[in-house]
């Protein structure tokens, strides 16, 4: 845990009926954009909600800017955008600042109005009269208007068209021009990470599969395709292997394990999608043996 981390979880475990997060250690470094990626149910939202103090851990802890997650001391230093709008449907957009501004220590009403204008959120509309894209932009306008250091976004692009997604990315980039600012967002659309994220955390079934710089992820893993059969010595190295009817296979592997597969295979770069999918497939088949998917 270096002083450069704004958000740190230590052995964070969250259990509802099953384990949503299992003893995860995650750190979010200051000044960078961190992307949290993984399939649905991987624990991304659970992690973010724990970091925001919206739910209490079963065990372990999360600290934000040196304070326990959820402390009133840090909450308004975090700008929050969740995938559902936290505003009453009847509220008129232009009145929201006047309503909730005093609930924050530093609310800038002028900035709020300015952002609404820039993001083209119609000020006289009611919250329930906004499109999906407009509600996300409204949430961001609110989040940015109380001078946060950290921006946390949970699946912000779900339901957004490509133009709105591009706008959102630009807004985040502008926020990141200040080196004291940090952004962490979760997504299951991995292509968004490539342009935006500096640091990436891959979650699968409540555990961290990878945690580091995005390009390191791609340098660490590769895709192997072979006509088969899968060499016995290589079985353990194959992550989320998929087989076809002729015994051919495709799997994710660590680049270090390439030699185990012999010479008669094709090695390809692994995209972030490949990595997420294969890890998901891997944990699924290890809990349901014999169900490996036909490639």
């Amino acid at each position: 845990m270096t002083t450069g981390d704004v958000l740190v979880s230590r052995q964070l475990t969250v259990r509802r009926n099953s384990f949503a997060l299992r003893a995860v250690d995650i750190r979010v470094p200051r000044g960078y954009v961190t992307g949290l990626v993984g399939p649905n149910g991987a624990g991304k939202t659970t992690f973010l909600k724990s970091a925001l103090g919206l739910l209490a851990p079963t065990s372990g802890e999360v600290t934000v800017l040196g304070h326990p997650a959820g402390s009133a001391a840090v909450q308004d230093r975090i700008g929050v955008v969740l995938d559902r709008t936290t505003a009453a449907p009847e509220w008129r957009v232009e009145t929201i600042g006047r309503r909730i501004g005093k609930l924050y220590r530093r609310w800038d009403e002028q900035q709020y109005r300015g952002l609404l204008d820039r993001f083209d959120v119609p000020p006289r509309n009611r919250v329930d009269g906004l499109s999906r894209g407009q509600t996300v932009k409204l949430s961001i306008a609110i989040a940015l208007s109380h001078d946060p250091e950290i921006l946390v976004l949970d699946e912000p692009t779900s339901g957004l068209d490509p133009v709105a997604r591009r706008d959102l990315a630009d807004i985040i980039r502008e926020f990141m021009l200040d080196p004291a600012h940090t952004t962490v967002f979760s997504t299951h659309i991995t292509s968004e990470l490539d342009d935006l994220a500096d640091w990436i955390v891959v979650l699968n079934s409540g555990t961290v599969v990878f945690d580091g710089m995005l390009h390191e992820l791609h340098e660490k893993y590769a895709i192997v395709r072979g006509a088969g059969p899968l060499p016995a010595a290589a079985r353990a190295a194959a992550i989320g292997a998929r087989f076809d009817a002729q015994g051919g296979y495709e799997a994710l592997i660590r680049v270090d394990d390439t030699a185990k597969f012999g010479g008669d295979v094709v090695i390809d770069g692994a995209s972030t999608d490949d990595i997420v999918v294969h890890f998901a497939e891997h944990s699924h088949s290890t809990s349901h043996p014999g169900s490996e998917v036909a490639a």
Binding site: G70, I78, V80, L82, T86, A88, V127
Partner: peptide, 11 residues
């Protein structure tokens, strides 16, 4: 309005 969540993210 999911306002409880909103309150939790303020000061």
């Amino acid at each position: 309005g999911l306002l409880d969540t909103l309150y939790a993210t303020t000061s």
